Simulated assay, not measured.
Amino acid sequence: MKRVLIMSDSHGNVENMVTAVEKENPDMIIHLGDCVTDAVRLNNRFPQITFANVPGNCDYSDGKTEKVLNIDGYKVLICHGHTYNVKITYLPLECHAREIGVDIALFGHTHSVFYDTHNGVSLFNPGSIGAPAWGKAPSYGVITFDKENDVMKMDVMYLE
């Protein structure tokens, strides 16, 4: 079983990410882009925690805008979402996720929380830890992966 902290769109607010890590004590941290430099600073602060990240549309990228991870037996796509036009529709991301056979696609970019399971694929956007949309509180996700008991539990948390 793994408890994974998912954050996106920090936009310079490393302190909110530190607060989330200290509150959740995760086994792994995933940063979904905007800003990669924040992700590096967080990883340097908590080097003992397994870490993965991808760049966003506000980051320099060498073209590797997504990764597929194996987390406790689940196949997980991580991306920022901008290359799938998630501000307009989730369908291209869902189709790609089904095509590559992942269990869940994690993405950001919209600065708004979204989660749903459709056609056998879960989509999860934890919102923004640094610059949330429409005056909402900063948010992040916590996913518990437990393949042995066939559990993938997604929670959205807010910093008040």
Rank of each mutant, 00 (worst) to 15 (best):
M1Y: 12
K2W: 09
I6G: 08
I6V: 14
S8G: 05
S8P: 01
S8C: 05
D9L: 05
D9S: 08
D9K: 12
N13F: 06
V14N: 07
E15W: 10
E15L: 10
E15M: 06
N16R: 08
M17Q: 08
A20E: 00
E22H: 05
K23P: 00
K23T: 04
N25I: 00
N25R: 14
N25G: 01
N25V: 00
P26N: 04
P26Q: 03
M28K: 12
I30V: 10
I30P: 02
I30H: 05
L32T: 01
G33R: 07
D34L: 08
V36H: 12
T37N: 15
T37H: 15
D38H: 05
A39N: 04
A39M: 04
V40Y: 14
V40R: 14
R41H: 13
N43I: 00
R45N: 08
R45D: 02
R45M: 13
F46N: 08
I49C: 14
T50V: 13
A52I: 01
A52P: 00
V54E: 03
Y60D: 05
Y60H: 10
Y60K: 14
S61A: 13
D62K: 09
D62S: 12
D62L: 07
T65N: 15
K67Y: 04
K67W: 02
V68Q: 06
L69D: 01
L69P: 00
L69F: 04
N70K: 13
I71Q: 06
G73D: 01
G73Y: 03
G73K: 07
Y74A: 04
Y74D: 00
L77T: 03
I78Y: 09
H80T: 03
Y84S: 08
N85W: 15
K87G: 12
I88M: 15
Y90K: 15
L93T: 07
E94P: 01
H96D: 04
E99Q: 14
E99K: 15
I100N: 10
I100G: 11
I100E: 06
I100A: 11
V102H: 08
D103A: 08
D103T: 05
D103S: 13
A105M: 05
A105C: 06
L106N: 02
G108I: 04
G108V: 01
T110K: 12
H111W: 13
V113W: 12
V113E: 11
V113L: 11
F114N: 11
F114I: 02
F114T: 03
F114M: 13
Y115N: 14
D116S: 15
D116C: 13
D116G: 13
H118R: 15
G120R: 11
G120F: 06
G120W: 05
S122T: 14
L123A: 12
L123T: 03
F124Y: 11
P126D: 01
G127D: 02
G130F: 07
A131S: 11
A131V: 00
A131T: 01
P132G: 05
G135E: 02
K136A: 12
P138V: 01
G141T: 01
G141Q: 04
V142P: 02
T144M: 10
D146C: 09
N149A: 09
V151Y: 09
M152C: 07
M154Q: 04
D155H: 11
D155N: 11
M157D: 00
M157I: 03
E160F: 13
